[in-house]
Nucleic acid binder design. Structure first.
Lengths: 210, 210
DNA sequence: CGCTTATGGATACTGATACTATCCATCACA
DNA sequence: TGTGATGGATAGTATCAGTATCCATAAGCG
């Protein structure tokens, strides 16, 4: 397959494919001569994955690169691969809540984690985000939402369990890692849009005339 | 309060505050003379909200503006306000799946919605995103995840119900609308980080030695 | 064989986004 | 009375995600 055909097969413009090649998102095709390369099925699948992450999940190009690198690093133990992808996925957010607000949020969150018996790396960026979010919700006067954190965690635990079960059926380690990463990222898009639909539907019902 | 004090109170640089004023995210202070304005508590709260949306939830500035406008449009019926915010929140994603893949995904999604008795505007952008995501997951060979869509919907419905209950305790219409919007947006950040933590914890447990 | 089109690779340009920086004529306050 | 802050306007910057252009070469067609 030449680059034009790859472009047609995936509906990605040739210059964009060249850009991904430059950025190292997509491995180079096999060169048969200095200006002739051929691309295969792996390229089609990789490109589809790249596009889904960028367009659907709005993952920045640089992050997609990190994620793909962690997928290709199949010498690493699986949970280390997953951890790398997770780290890439949680941008460093730097919303500085006041110190005591942060402390209160930290207490609540670490309590929640301990109660559920989760084992969480204290350095996990998602932990910092969670703490900041709780602090922000408090400072915005939404304590009644924060009060239900445990119920949120319940629901989240439920479908996380489900996802992991669904994904465990994969035969090879590589496929398993890929499934986890895709599931993590596109799963979020899935949940977010389901949530919006559910909200619209339930809220229309509830507040018909307000 | 002058702009410097507002800056200190919220930890947002003065030039950034000026930028938000220019962009119409923040209402102008009350002018006492051509170059002296005073800001009040509403400005502090608004600014905190803006920062939480931008920093924590990564909402683009232009979208924040639309959201705030919908909050300030308190003449509209509540569910119309919410609908506006929802529309602003779902970017137009244009990942063109092949036509038959899209058709299959559409069937599954509309089936799901019908089964659950949700009433969804066929034009809702979240619906298009959901369909595209399902199609993308299929094309990436993750059918086993898609198969559990209904269980996802179950969990999502559960905490949407919870959120709406939590938020309904708000006394005034304005506060209610604000709570719904904050809950929708920061709730997503909350769920996403909880999910990442749960995944890391459960997957570490499950694949200790792979 | 010649001609048009496509290709790989390099470099340059673009448009959007989210700020920052600079200026300047006031103004408050010590 | 002068030092620093302010409102308002305009201009500049960094990053991101592509697009566009060029060139020498190669492929496919008549």
């Amino acid at each position: 397959m030449r680059i034009g055909e790859l472009s047609k097969a995936t509906d990605v413009p040739v210059p964009t494919i060249k850009y991904y090649l430059r950025e190292g998102l997509l491995p180079a095709g096999e060169l048969s001569s200095p200006n002739q390369a051929s691309y295969g099925d792996t390229h089609v699948r990789r490109l589809r994955l790249i596009r889904a992450l960028i367009e659907l999940a709005q993952v920045p190009v640089a992050t997609v690169k990190e994620i793909l690198e962690s997928l290709d690093a199949d010498a690493e133990p699986l949970h280390e691969q997953i951890g790398r992808a997770h780290r890439a996925l949680t941008p460093t957010r730097r919303l500085s809540a006041s110190d005591d607000a942060r402390a209160a949020a930290t207490t609540q969150v670490t309590g929640l984690i301990a109660d559920r018996g989760w084992s969480v790396d204290p350095e996990a960026p998602a932990l910092a985000t969670l703490i900041d979010t709780v602090a922000a919700l408090r400072s915005l006067g939404q304590d009644n939402l924060v009060a239900h954190l445990d119920t949120y965690a319940d629901a989240v635990e439920r479908f996380t369990q489900l996802e992991i079960d669904a994904v465990t059926t994969n035969p090879t380690r590589d496929q398993l890692a890929e499934s986890v990463v895709i599931g993590t990222i596109l799963g979020e898009t899935l949940i977010a849009s389901l949530r919006l639909l559910a909200q619209e539907s339930i809220s229309a019902e509830r507040w018909k005339n307000r």
